[in-house]
């Protein structure tokens, strides 16, 4: 009995230490983002701040116009999530329910399209967008990410739709609904939980993207949060507390999304698992 208690405590202690190690960068960032530079200079990174110092965060916010960057990221990620979802629904409707000819080849194509390295598309996309006047616009990124994300969405949703209850489709057909009406009145509402999961993924993935936004958004006022923060690193004005402030501003939206979306994700995962 005593040995068991001992093992229990030991396992718990080791795991707790490991988790604390994983979380320590977050703690360091939070401690030092709200610390005065003089405070940091005298007491170092591990000390608790003498007082809650928010000027560093506020100065940095103003310096990079962080509000604008948040809006840019929201506009791009939100548009991509909606558009990629619509494209995924259409594709999956044709492949999973319509069973169009050559669907196997299409699915393999979408799967491969999703895992291609963006480096293999970047320069031609850059060149083409310049040719049609879309370079340095958020629209270019929205189009590109709609294609990339919907490749994954198509792949996933097609297998959900392939298992869609046939009776419901037949019932809709008997009621005289065409394929368009059936899609919006029957298929979309019933698969809503899968769709909300996809929407969430598309949004978060697009928010986190770095490579293509870095290439396509050269004007500061059009940049996304990760790009605006990423290109500042190595800047001479970035000292310890300013860098922690910038890191905290990058971390907060991601953590908030995670907390907000967590339930949607779990619910969707359950729905997907029992489909």
């Amino acid at each position: 009995m005593r040995a068991a208690t001992l093992t229990r405590s030991a396992v718990l202690a080791v795991l707790t230490l490991l988790v604390l190690a994983v979380l320590s960068p977050f703690v360091l960032v939070m401690l030092n983002a709200v610390k005065a530079p003089t405070d940091y200079a005298s007491d170092g990174p591990l000390a608790l701040p003498d007082s809650l110092y928010l000027k560093g965060l506020a100065d940095f916010w103003i310096r990079v116009d962080f509000g604008e960057k948040l809006v840019n990221s929201l506009v791009i990620s939100g548009s991509v999530a909606v558009l990629a979802l619509v494209v995924s629904i259409f594709n999956a409707y044709a492949l999973g329910i319509g069973r169009v000819r050559g669907r196997g080849a299409f699915l393999v194509f979408f799967l491969l399209a999703n895992l291609l390295p963006q480096e293999a598309l970047a320069y031609p996309l850059y060149y083409l967008s310049k040719a049609v006047g879309l370079y340095n616009t958020q629209l270019a990124l929205i189009i590109i990410f709609t294609a990339i994300q919907s490749a994954f969405g198509t792949y996933l949703l097609s297998s959900v739709y392939a298992a869609f209850p046939r009776e419901m489709l037949e019932a809709a057909a008997i009621d005289g609904a065409g394929s368009w009406r059936t899609l919006w009145r029957v298929v979309v509402p019933i698969s809503w939980s899968s769709l909300s999961v996809l929407f969430t993924f598309f949004f978060i993935w697009t928010w986190n993207e770095f490579f293509l936004p870095l290439i396509f958004l050269i004007s500061n006022d059009r940049q996304t949060v990760p790009v605006a923060l990423g290109v500042l690193q190595g800047d001479r004005l970035m000292d310890a507390t300013t860098t922690s402030a910038s890191a905290l501003l990058g971390i907060l939206p991601a953590v908030i999304f995670f907390l907000v979306f967590q339930n949607t994700l779990t619910r969707g995962v359950m729905a997907g698992a029992t489909k």
């Binding site: 259409f90 594709n91 409707y93 044709a94 319509g98 399209a113 031609p124 294609a147 065409g178």
Partner: peptide, 22 residues
């Protein structure tokens, strides 16, 4: 019903953004 039509937007988009650049 002709489901192939639903594939059109997605296929065009993939052609433009993925196949052609690749």
């Amino acid at each position: 019903g002709s489901y192939a039509l639903y594939l059109l937007p997605g296929a065009l988009l993939s052609l433009l953004v993925i196949v052609m650049p690749l």
